[in-house]
Amino acid sequence: MKAPDYVAEVSSVPIGDILRRYPLAVDYLANIRLVGVDETKTLPEILENVDEDMLEEFGLDREEVIFHFSAFLEAFSRMEESIETISSITILGWRDKAGRPEMLELTVTPGEVVSIVGPTGSGKSRLLEDIECLAQRDTPTARQILINGSVPDLDKRFSTGGKLVAQLSQNMNFVMDLTVQEFLEMHAKSRMIPDSAAVVEKCFAVANSLAGEKFTLDTKVTQLSGGQSRSLMIADTALLSSSPIILIDELENAGIDRREAIEILVGNEKIVLMSTHDPLLALRADKRIVIRNGGVTKVIETTAEEEQTLHKIEAIDSALLVIRNQLRRGEIVTEESIPEFQER
């Protein structure tokens, strides 16, 4: 349907039916202070009885409201269709800060995890940023990003408005004064998901399975602990975010089940890139990019031996968790809490 079709529909169909067909329409009316309208009337009939001065405050007259409202319905129905399918992204390198060529031609597909390692200030965030803005040899690093093997068209690059990439970092907090349920419902609404109740429930269950300490649907998101917040953010990004690519900037020590977190993201066919030094995360990735002095020096495929060591690292990690919990419970830490590790 095109905008003129919406104009015809809005002009002839009672507003009550319009509101049922397009659940977002109620927001548009609320934004111009039209609430509690007679649902049996059409929008032009309703506007007959609306003070013109009030509409003028919004920069509209009666006729413009109808066009503007139709454009709104058209824009949001278009947005519903334009959910991207991305089958791969490719990162092509250029040169590091010293002008040495960068060893980088890497293609990542949905379900794959790539970790990014390197000293502080080496350019990890810069790489994430190149991906976010779909760099075309025009950022300071001169890298190029391909989508599905080809150069993304300029329009797409400028219009996606950050929808391609979701970001998660240690510094993020919830600021909305909402309960977990209201929060998830609000996000589902913005995604225009038809069966939001089921998604909300699933998201809540997944978040709780990641979190060390459980929380309820009526907990305020601002009252969640660090680990609970992170769990909710991961579950929400995996299940409710439209973005096919997820960039993670440091998630260590977040008090969550990191293995399961990665599995949830990957299981939802996301492309995951994460900057991390947590061995449990970095070694769980399929590949890891090594950055030094602004350039990628190596791409390492996680070896079978490294995967073997994961079991031992997990044992060390859970030993630390036992000690942490002992402290939390007010107990005394003894020699027995610390397992023996084989000497080299």
């Binding site: 950050g162 979701a166 970001q167 998660l168 970092s169 510094n171 993020m172 907090n173 919830f174 600021v175 909305m176 929060f183 609000m186 996000h187 913005s190 995604r191 917040s229 909710l232 953010m233 929400d236 990004t237 409710l240 975010s241 439209s242 973005s243």
Partner: peptide
Amino acid sequence: GDVVSQAEREV
């Protein structure tokens, strides 16, 4: 946007 959650950015 760097200090709020992805969901809040999207909403």
